[in-house]
Design a protein around this nucleic acid. Structure first.
Lengths: 265, 265
DNA sequence: CGAATCGTTGATTCAACTCAACGCGAGTGG
DNA sequence: CCACTCGCGTTGAGTTGAATCAACGATTCG
């Protein structure tokens, strides 16, 4: 294994984490045959634009990107976020063109892989394809959860819900009290993601802080009371499909009886 | 080919339509090896529930289903629709459990396939896997477009947008003036899908009728002025990824210069 | 220092929610 | 056959949550 590229190693590690198993030798070999290019983006750079053929894929080593759509009215809607340790560009892999823009939200380090190579790899190792496709399926689940978030929660709950989601995705860890992470969006962008105005986002965040659920200093979010925040944001981690023991997740592991849902009756 | 099951034929036809090509013999053979079960559902029946292992997949021959989530407040959000000639249950195929409910919206005829068989088939024929995975990717695109719809359009535009989408998905045809289709949702359910109350949906629909864009008699939608409806609903068919010439699509074929987006400036 | 961006707060406006009532048609049962 | 109920669509009136407008403090950066 000593001869394998350090970047390929990162990919292998990420895939093993997702699949919850050690990759086989042929799988490792297939990955190490990929030509991986290191790419750096600064905030605002685009990775894919609407209409582009989906030739670029990548793995985010560090940073965050957002998927956006422009509406006829000139408003911008953030339809998805991608953070470190996640893939980008997989969503359109088997389609003819991208249907949205993909931009860097912060500075990013990305391992770029040509889509054609990825498709070839999937053909050789369907099991690797499954891991990548599971990633797409999770994106789909997350998008659908966002629909529910926008569709039937008020401003405060929406913000709380997104803070919970990002805590888990960014930290890759538990939603434990005192957990802290850097939010890659400012309040305007949060509004674009949540279908709210900046003012409403600001008020919601101050409300969460006043209730001692989560505080925000600059871009640094601190989870003060995880349980209360989850309940307030009607959050359940199931849709993130983090895996039983995977990704340092403790919350999902302890099969909790979903206090939120049961309270609904 | 004469010996192939009529249900397998339906699947083959659907896959060929999606892939825009004739399937190879080995692909046809792989499909004909599937054991397909005919299932009928009546409105309200469930096909999958949240938490279920994703063992059931299917192809909708007729009817419509909805994917739903319950929120803590007791509200139900429709997070996706699946209509005839689409697959169901693919979204969770490589995940451990379903994260939402899947219910019949109307009476349905479904060709059910066990997930395990489908996975095996994908392993044997990665090219077939690509067609199925493209379906998942389109679901993801649609979900993200719904996010944009909920996030930054008012009630009237949301309804108009969804009517456009469903016209294309259900009719599989052009959004031509005079086009007519049966909406599988009542106004309450439309509200659940669009994050609106029934009253708002009703007023929006009457508004669209008053402006001679679309009329609604019982559950039958008639597109009166397709261009106006598209513009009003800020609709572009790109996210449906219907393919160049595929599925009888005329609209997508004629590479139009996207009048909506250009008007935004 | 000035310019720009972001967060914060108050005041006003408005779109959609909620409540409420009623018409209509389908189905049901006496 | 009619009376009844039930679900759905329709409409009006009052309420409210968030948008919008506006102003100001803090921070960063050139």
């Amino acid at each position: 294994m000593g001869e394998i590229n350090i970047d390929a190693r990162s990919l292998i590690g990420a895939l093993e984490l997702r699949a919850q198993r050690t990759l086989r030798h042929d799988e490792v070999a297939a990955i190490s045959r990929l030509s991986i290019r290191r790419v750096r983006l600064v905030a605002g750079d685009h990775f894919l634009r609407e209409g582009d053929p989906p030739t670029r894929c990548g793995f985010i080593v560090d940073g965050a990107l957002h998927q956006t759509k422009l509406t006829g009215g000139g408003a911008q809607q953030i339809i998805g976020l991608r953070v470190k340790n996640e893939f980008v560009g997989l969503q359109n892999l088997f389609l003819e063109s991208a249907d949205h823009d993909l931009h860097a939200l912060t500075g990013c380090r990305i391992l770029e892989i040509q889509a054609a190579q990825l498709v070839a790899m999937i053909g050789q190792c369907p099991a690797l394809g499954q891991i990548l496709m599971a990633d797409v399926m999770i994106s789909c689940s997350v998008a659908q959860d966002w629909i529910a978030n926008l569709g039937c929660r008020d401003a405060q709950s929406r913000v709380a819900h997104l803070l919970c989601e990002l805590a888990l995705r960014i930290e890759g860890g538990a939603l434990s009290p005192g957990a802290r992470y850097v939010l890659p969006l400012n309040q305007s962008q949060l509004g674009d993601a949540l279908g709210l105005g900046r003012v409403a986002v600001n008020r919601a965040m101050r409300h969460l802080a006043a209730l001692n659920m989560a505080s925000c200093d600059k871009s640094c979010i601190t989870i003060l009371d995880a349980a209360k925040l989850e309940q307030f944001g009607d959050f359940s981690a199931r849709y993130l499909h983090l895996g039983r023991s995977g990704r340092d997740r403790r919350k999902v592991a302890r099969d909790d009886p979903s206090p939120i849902r049961s309270s609904a009756g």
